[in-house]
């Protein structure tokens, strides 16, 4: 309960969780709260500025920008969680193995991390997409596969500092195997930093997906995503500012929410880390 008491006092963290919960609800209830069908074309009201009927205006096909932005939150959430899940899984296993076994296994895995870090991540993602089809699933997998390096380093560092502790020695003394020590004794102790990394990871993945979709190699139209609505905004930049303004605000707010949440969790779990 100590955690909650400290968490409640952290204003930044509370703001962050409020934003995260808001967009979570938005994406779950999108079918009920969005005023129009996000794909409904109405050529009579093409590119009309914000009005009472369409609070955020309409796009070049007369589709309601508010409804499209609400549905777009589903994409961001999906990509954020799935790709971060993949990155966490890879980073957790590699980091645990490297930290626990050390020696050449450690060297090998850490070299692999160094090599991956040489690539401008965005280049690597784009190159892979050139060979595959751009689809939401491919995007999630690729973002996950290019985002595990930081997590590996984190888990490895935790494992190295934990594995010589008394409770691990004790577990070994009563005959626990490597597998058991890694999963039931060491990993639970690394969970705090994993949780924080995951929160920041989701924010990063949402930013990457929106940039990819903006460039036309992420989520493909007509599925609305914040990034590809902004593409429409760029195409109509001299007429329709509302197409550019609102979806971007949604991205900014969501990412800000996850970042604040991450900071909040870190400060609460481990006040020593407070920057």
């Amino acid at each position: 309960m100590d955690f909650w008491n400290r968490y409640k006092k952290n204003k930044l963290a509370l703001t962050g969780s409020a934003i995260v919960v808001f967009f979570f609800l938005l994406s779950i209830f999108a079918p009920w709260i969005s005023p129009y069908d996000p794909g409904a074309i109405n050529l009579q009201i093409v590119l009309s500025p914000p009005s009472a009927a369409h609070p955020l205006g309409t796009d070049q096909l007369g589709r309601d920008v508010l409804s499209r932005t609400i549905w777009g939150s589903q994409i961001s959430l999906k990509v954020g969680f799935v790709s971060t899940g993949i990155a966490i899984l890879i980073g957790m296993v590699l980091g645990a193995v490297a930290g626990y076994y050390g020696r050449w296994v450690d060297t090998l895995i850490m070299r692999a991390v160094d090599i991956m870090l040489c690539f401008p991540t965005f280049f690597l993602i784009l190159a892979v997409i050139a060979f595959l089809e751009p689809s939401i699933w491919n995007i999630m997998i690729i973002i996950g596969l290019t985002g595990w390096m930081g997590i590996t380093r984190l888990v490895r560092a935790d494992f190295i500092s934990l594995k010589e502790r008394d409770f691990v020695q004790a577990a070994r003394a009563i005959g626990a195997g490597d597998f058991r020590i890694i999963f039931s004794h060491l990993l639970p102790n690394a969970m705090a930093s994993l949780l924080v990394a995951a929160t920041f990871g989701i924010a990063g993945a949402i930013l990457t997906e929106s940039a990819l979709s903006f460039l036309g190699i992420g989520v493909q139209p007509p599925t609305p995503s914040w990034g590809n609505i902004l593409t429409d905004g760029k195409d109509n930049i001299d007429i329709a500012w509302w197409l550019s303004l609102y979806p971007g605000m949604a991205i900014l707010l969501t990412v800000l929410g996850y970042n604040l949440l991450g900071e909040g969790i870190r400060d609460t779990l481990d006040p020593r880390l407070k920057s």
């Binding site: 924010a203 930013l207 929106s210 940039a211 903006f214 902004l230 905004g233 760029k234 930049i237 550019s244 303004l245 979806p247 971007g248 991205i251 900014l252 707010l253 990412v255 800000l256 970042n259 604040l260």
Partner: peptide, 15 residues
């Protein structure tokens, strides 16, 4: 700094 970390720069470019 918080806003900077969360800013999609391509959106800022559009604005």
């Amino acid at each position: 700094v918080f806003i900077g970390f969360a800013m999609p720069t391509f959106w800022l470019a559009l604005l």
